[in-house]
Design a protein around this nucleic acid. Structure first.
Lengths: 175, 175
DNA sequence: ACCTGAACACCGTTCAAGT
DNA sequence: ACCTGAACACCGTTCAAGT
């Protein structure tokens, strides 16, 4: 006689995260998710509104994880940038879910988005404008790298160093 | 008596592009695509290998379109950057297909990828390294903008000006 | 409240059959 | 060569029914 673990929004989010992490977001179906929780697909709808909301829960859970690590990473621009890249490459299936879906702000812990934005602003030397330009660069480079869109012979280490150099130069120029 | 237009790889690509353009890539199913061409879904497989290949055809068609426009755009970094942004925002449903899918290089016109890369290198003042950093920034900013991931009050015009300023400063610093 | 089986309207793809 | 209907193994979601 096996006992089934309690099913609630948290356990659903955890099971969904595990599926996405291993097999990508396309592998997340309401049926596979239900199976992982030992119930049938229609039962999920007693806990969540729809598949969209399941994804939003994972997004929220992992944005919190990212935020904590980003906050804790060394405080120089270079260290923040390295953390961003490493987090993304360590979580290739989760990254697009967290940073490339519509952000369900209503399910987010209060202030989390602002906290993360604040760290980027700090790394960019205090300018909101440069912070957005920097974030775009980090996000874009990660995305191109994850999709294998850069030429095969592209030296990614050197490219990331170039990004860091650019930010440091921009900060120095306004000091 | 209605006559059906000829069905071939080109007409399939055109019909697929039209569907994606209007309703996004999720709306592209083999059944809706076949219906647009006045045939049944299984018949598509006499012309293409699978849905993946249909997408690759659209990707190839539009990368060529982008490349032609990018080439023709004014030759200053600022003008190239503006063209990139405008093209993306004018084609919000096509952009991810062209720049965020695995690139099927085997279906691409010879040299097209290198041509586009060359233009970015030129806009970046000749440095391959800075070209990748720049492309990442353009791609990332467009993606964040298309996904509405930046704060509502973010001044996008100013952010793009900041990107242009950064590139110009970087070029100047190595002249 | 939580779970179920059956059903609806969809998918991509295969295949035997027609012309 | 090109097209078809039928089928297979999937989807997300709804709903009446059970406890």
């Amino acid at each position: 006689m096996t006992i089934r673990k309690m099913v609630n929004r948290r356990s659903i989010a955890d099971a969904a995260r595990a599926i996405i992490e291993v097999n990508g977001i396309d592998a997340l179906s309401m049926r596979t998710l239900a199976a992982a929780l030992d119930i049938k697909a229609p039962s999920l709808y007693d806990h969540v509104k729809n598949r969209e909301e399941v994804i939003a829960l994972v997004q929220s859970e992992w944005l919190r994880d990212f935020g904590a690590g980003f906050e804790a990473a060394g405080k120089s621009p270079s260290e923040k940038i390295h953390f961003y890249r490493d987090w993304a490459l360590r979580n290739p299936n989760l990254y697009p879910v967290v940073f490339q879906q519509h952000l369900h702000r209503d399910l987010l812990p209060e202030g989390l988005e602002l906290q993360i934005l604040g760290i980027v602003v700090e790394a960019a030397g205090g300018s909101h404008l440069r912070a957005r330009a920097l974030w775009a660069q980090l996000h874009g480079l990660v995305d191109l790298e994850l999709h294998g869109r850069l030429p095969d012979d592209a030296d990614m280490e050197a490219t990331w160093r170039e990004v860091i150099r650019g930010v440091e130069a921009a900060i120095k120029s306004t000091e």
